Measured scan of single mutants.
Amino acid sequence: VVSQCEHCRQEKLLHEKLRFSGVEKSFCSEGCVLLYKQDF
C-alpha cells in the first residue's frame, strides 16, 4: 500500500499507521515515526 508519509510528505510504501489525537497518520519508516513523535 502506497500512502503519503506524515513526516517526510513523500508517497512511499506504508510502514505503519498510528493514531494521534484520534486521527490516523501514515508513516513510511520507523525513523519518520520517531521524528514525528518528537515534533508532536
Score class of each variant (00 low, 15 high):
1 V>L: 07
1 V>D: 07
2 V>F: 09
2 V>T: 14
2 V>E: 09
3 S>G: 15
3 S>C: 09
3 S>N: 09
4 Q>Y: 15
4 Q>F: 15
4 Q>W: 14
4 Q>C: 14
4 Q>T: 15
5 C>R: 01
5 C>N: 15
6 E>Q: 13
7 H>R: 08
7 H>W: 12
7 H>Q: 11
7 H>L: 04
8 C>K: 12
8 C>Q: 00
8 C>S: 03
9 R>C: 09
9 R>L: 08
9 R>D: 03
10 Q>G: 04
10 Q>F: 01
10 Q>K: 09
10 Q>V: 04
11 E>C: 12
11 E>L: 08
11 E>P: 11
11 E>I: 03
12 K>C: 15
13 L>G: 04
13 L>Q: 06
13 L>W: 01
13 L>P: 08
14 L>A: 04
14 L>I: 12
15 H>M: 11
16 E>H: 08
16 E>D: 04
16 E>R: 10
16 E>T: 08
17 K>C: 04
17 K>F: 08
17 K>S: 05
17 K>V: 07
18 L>M: 10
18 L>C: 07
20 F>V: 12
20 F>T: 00
20 F>S: 10
20 F>C: 03
21 S>M: 10
21 S>G: 13
21 S>A: 13
22 G>R: 01
22 G>C: 03
22 G>W: 01
22 G>Q: 00
22 G>A: 01
22 G>M: 06
23 V>H: 06
23 V>G: 10
24 E>A: 02
25 K>E: 00
25 K>A: 06
25 K>R: 08
25 K>Y: 08
25 K>D: 01
25 K>T: 03
26 S>M: 10
26 S>G: 04
26 S>W: 10
26 S>T: 02
26 S>K: 10
27 F>T: 02
27 F>Q: 05
28 C>E: 00
28 C>R: 00
28 C>G: 00
28 C>S: 02
29 S>P: 04
29 S>I: 08
29 S>D: 01
29 S>N: 02
29 S>T: 03
30 E>W: 00
31 G>L: 08
31 G>F: 01
31 G>I: 13
31 G>T: 14
31 G>K: 13
32 C>L: 00
32 C>E: 02
32 C>R: 01
32 C>Q: 05
32 C>K: 05
33 V>D: 03
33 V>Q: 06
34 L>S: 09
34 L>M: 13
34 L>G: 12
34 L>Q: 12
34 L>Y: 04
35 L>T: 09
35 L>D: 14
35 L>V: 03
35 L>E: 13
36 Y>G: 06
36 Y>P: 09
36 Y>H: 13
37 K>R: 04
37 K>C: 14
37 K>I: 02
38 Q>C: 00
38 Q>P: 02
38 Q>V: 01
38 Q>A: 10
39 D>M: 10
39 D>E: 10
40 F>A: 13
